[in-house]
Each structure stands twice: as C-alpha cells, then as structure tokens.
Amino acid sequence: MSFKSCVLALSHLKSRGIQPVICGSGTKLEVDYNKRLALLTNTLNLTGNITLGQLVVFLKNARCVVANDSGASNLAQLLGIPALIFFGTTTPYSRIFGNKVESITNGENCEYYPCINNHGNTRCLNHVLPFVCHSLGDNQVTSKIDLLLES
C-alpha cells in the first residue's frame, strides 16, 4: 500500500467522521513509516505499542479496517469487520472473502506479479524500483471505503 494510499484512506475516514488508528509491528521500518504517516495526518499511532489481544479489541470496535494483506486484515475478516485489503506483492485469488471485503490488487500490471510466490521467493525486488505495485490502486481507495461503510 503506497504512502499516498495511506494518506488518502486516513483523510477520507476522518472526513466521514471516523477516527482512524494506525497499528503495526514494532520493526524499525514500520515504526518510522507509521510515525511519519501519523504526523502528516494527525492520526493516533499505536504501532509497536499494542498486543495481539489488544488489536482484537480495537478491531471488534472498528467500523472498518484498511490494511495490506496481513494479520490485521485476516483478523478483521474472521471478526466480520468490513475490510479494504491491499494486495501488492501477493495475489487475492486464493482467498475466500466474506461479503464485507473489498480488495485492491495493485500489481497486476507488473510483469513480475505476483512477485512473492508461495515459497517466499521474490522475483521483482532486484528489478523494479520504485515498486510498481505500491503505487497502483490509489484512485480506488475512497470509493472502496465508501462501499464498505455503506454495507
């Protein structure tokens, strides 16, 4: 999910009267990325500061979840929370979704897609910079969020 997509999603949720919360693991890369995102959008950032159990509580109280193909998006699906899931380096076609899930498949126009296959091999990481899959789908963010909030 591109930085632009994140900013669009957070701004759009706020415009709809929803207070977004940024969550993520405690890796340095994710902490730095989400700190920058939170400062730019004036959004609560809990990256690296909540447990899995606390994340489940947040998700149970969420109106929707916007996430990449990750543990948070999988938990949202299990809990029946409307979710917008970004697939960049992976493919959604082997997933079974409920009726409250929208997806954006970012990499289909890239010759290396999907660049991470079932064995964890990366095919594009040494060939395509910046990653094409991280910049596609930005124009779909707000309309897909609206679909989820109306469901």
Results as ranks from 00 to 15, higher is better:
Ala62Asp: 08
Ala62Cys: 09
Ala62Gly: 05
Cys64Met: 08
Val65Met: 02
Val65Cys: 05
Val65His: 00
Val66His: 01
Val66Arg: 01
Ala67Asp: 04
Ala67Arg: 02
Asn68Asp: 09
Asn68Thr: 15
Asn68Leu: 03
Asp69Ala: 04
Asp69Tyr: 07
Asp69Lys: 05
Asp69Thr: 09
Asp69His: 06
Ser70Asn: 05
Ser70Cys: 04
Gly71Arg: 03
Gly71Lys: 11
Ala72Cys: 13
Ser73Met: 10
Asn74Glu: 10
Asn74Met: 10
Leu75Cys: 09
Ala76Met: 09
Ala76Gly: 11
Gln77Leu: 09
Gln77Lys: 14
Leu78Ser: 15
Leu79His: 08
Gly80Gln: 02
Gly80Trp: 14
Pro82Lys: 01
Pro82Phe: 09
Pro82Gly: 02
Ala83Phe: 06
Ala83Thr: 15
Ala83Ser: 14
Ile85Thr: 14
Ile85Cys: 04
Phe86Ile: 08
Phe86Cys: 04
Phe87Gln: 01
Phe87Trp: 11
Phe87Thr: 07
Gly88Gln: 05
Gly88Asn: 04
Gly88His: 02
Gly88Asp: 02
Thr89Tyr: 10
Thr89Met: 11
Thr90Phe: 07
Thr90Tyr: 06
Thr90Cys: 03
Thr90Ile: 06
Thr91Ser: 14
Thr91Lys: 11
Thr91Gly: 03
Pro92Trp: 10
Pro92Ile: 04
Pro92Met: 08
Tyr93Val: 10
Tyr93Pro: 04
Tyr93Glu: 02
Ser94Lys: 15
Ser94Val: 14
Arg95Glu: 13
Ile96Thr: 13
Ile96Gly: 06
Phe97Pro: 06
Phe97Ser: 04
Gly98Glu: 04
Gly98Lys: 01
Lys100Asn: 05
Lys100Ile: 03
Lys100Ala: 01
Lys100Phe: 02
Lys100Pro: 00
Val101Lys: 06
Val101Cys: 10
Glu102Trp: 08
Glu102Ala: 05
Glu102Phe: 09
Ser103Phe: 15
Ser103Leu: 13
Ile104Asp: 01
Ile104His: 11
Thr105Asn: 12
Thr105Arg: 09
Asn106Ala: 11
Asn106Glu: 03
Asn106Cys: 10
Gly107Tyr: 01
Gly107Pro: 00
Glu108Lys: 15
Glu108Asn: 03
Glu108Thr: 12
Asn109Trp: 06
Glu111Trp: 11
Glu111Tyr: 07
Glu111Leu: 09
Glu111His: 05
Glu111Thr: 12
Tyr112Leu: 00
Tyr112Arg: 02
Tyr113Phe: 08
Tyr113Cys: 00
Tyr113Ser: 05
Tyr113Ala: 00
Pro114Asp: 00
Pro114Leu: 00
Pro114Ser: 05
Cys115Pro: 15
Cys115His: 12
Cys115Gly: 04
Cys115Asn: 08
Cys115Thr: 08
Cys115Phe: 04
Ile116Cys: 02
Asn117Ile: 07
Asn117Ser: 05
Asn117Pro: 00
His119Gln: 14
His119Pro: 05
Gly120Tyr: 13
Gly120Ala: 07
Gly120Lys: 13
Gly120Ile: 12
Gly120Ser: 07
Asn121Val: 14
Asn121His: 12
Thr122Lys: 06
Thr122Gly: 11
Arg123Glu: 10
Arg123Tyr: 03
Arg123Ala: 05
Cys124Asp: 06
Cys124Pro: 13
Leu125Trp: 14
Leu125Lys: 15
Leu125Ile: 14
Leu125Glu: 08
Leu125Val: 14
Asn126Tyr: 14
Asn126Trp: 13
Asn126Glu: 12
Asn126Ile: 06
Asn126Ala: 11
His127Gly: 02
His127Tyr: 10
Val128Ala: 03
Val128Cys: 08
Val128Phe: 00
Leu129Phe: 14
